[in-house]
């Protein structure tokens, strides 16, 4: 860490969070978030147009507050990084337009980066440089992927991903079935603490299929069936037990496949990122299984797991350090940017 490391402004607008982060190298200087979640909650999911409108409203105040928080002026910024995809097309476009204008206005380089790679890169703000290679388990509202990461700034390889629902999506859907608010992940996490993970034996999709892919849609349906049967028989639904048993099924598969990936590629470092990495049971079980397998586990603190601008700035700082070619002002926002494209 040094004074001469570049100061990078990171902009994230792929979903409902307007995130603005500022880093100097791998040192976090500011991480400001404006969320439109309250406006989406009653719809039971993120409404793209509502999110896009909110990003436009929130961008300027969020950038100003990040600069103020870091004690910096605009002229101190050396580079601008922005999530170019994947995510909601209209939402991404607001962040990309802002980032291009900041880069153009300040006369500094622009880096359009991959949101998923940023979820991996963010851990360096807390735990220092990533070992090369590392295995990353990325679990969020929109993605569940296992990645081999030889170098987060240039080379990310997909080993497997969900064939249907993302893990966070399963948490959100099951929460609805249990009458818990959206987004459901944190509520299930909390409810599960009072219940038993072995109360109901829910199915574990693709458990022994030898791939590094996931499937959570059958599990979600099984939970709904179980709850409906319970209601039909007039018995109360044991919410805590159902939450704990569902959660156990998810984290069992996630950690099992993550460690299989480590073994298969002979990698001794596992990183978990994305919103679901905030899950307390996932963190605990991953630690247990990593300890048993002699794998070092890295999980960023919950505030860095969910979408934020610091993760984008962190990856931007890696790109600057690696001498990557800056993006042009012509880059598009790409809602389905593949994980293998770290920067555009």
């Amino acid at each position: 860490m040094g004074r001469d490391e570049p100061i990078v402004l990171g902009i994230e607008t792929s979903c409902d969070e307007t995130g603005v982060g500022i880093v100097r190298g791998h040192t976090l200087l500011a991480n400001t978030i404006a969320s439109s979640m309250d406006e989406h909650a009653r719809f039971g999911g993120v409404v793209p147009e509502v999110a896009s409108r909110a990003h436009l409203e929130a961008m300027t105040p969020t950038v100003e507050s990040a600069l103020a928080g870091a004690g910096l002026r605009f002229s101190d910024i050396d580079a601008v990084a922005v999530t170019a995809g994947p995510g909601l097309a209209g939402a991404l476009l607001v962040g990309v337009a802002a980032a291009k204008a900041y880069a153009l206005g300040l006369g500094v380089p622009l880096y359009g980066v991959n949101h998923l790679a940023a979820h991996v890169a963010v851990d360096q703000l807390e735990h220092g440089p990533l070992p090369k290679p590392a295995i990353a388990l990325l679990v969020s509202g929109g993605h569940s992927s296992l990645l081999l990461v030889p170098d987060v700034a240039q080379d990310v390889i997909s080993l497997g991903s969900t064939v249907d629902d993302a893990a966070g999506e399963a948490f959100d859907k099951v929460a609805r079935v249990l009458g818990l608010p959206f987004p459901g992940g944190p509520h299930i996490d909390r409810a599960a603490r009072e219940g038993s993970g072995s109360a109901v034996a829910f199915p574990r999709g693709k458990y022994d299929d030898g791939t590094l892919d996931f499937s959570f849609s059958g599990l979600k349906t099984a939970v709904a069936r179980w709850v409906e049967a319970r209601e039909a028989s007039g018995e109360p639904v044991p919410v805590a037990d159902v939450a704990a048993s569902f959660q156990e099924a998810v984290v069992d598969v996630l950690t099992r496949k993550a460690l299989q990936a480590c073994a298969r590629y002979d990698v001794k470092d596992l990183l978990i990122g994305g919103g679901v990495a905030a899950n307390s049971r996932l963190r605990a079980l991953a630690q247990e299984r990593c300890d048993a397998a002699g794998v070092r586990l890295r999980v960023p603190r919950p505030g860095l797991c969910t979408d934020n601008g610091a993760m984008v700035a962190a990856l931007g700082a890696d790109l600057v350090a690696a001498g990557a070619t800056p993006s042009t002002l012509r880059i598009p926002a790409d809602s389905s940017l593949p994980i293998t494209v770290v920067h555009v």
Binding site: S52, R53, L56, M59, T60, V63, E64, F74, G90, L93, V94, A97, A98, K100, A101, Y102, L104, G105, L106
Partner: peptide, 14 residues
């Protein structure tokens, strides 16, 4: 939104 975001962001830096 592209135009309005660009205007606001350019104005802020300039």
């Amino acid at each position: 939104r592209v135009g309005l975001m660009t205007a606001t962001a350019l104005a802020l830096t300039a």
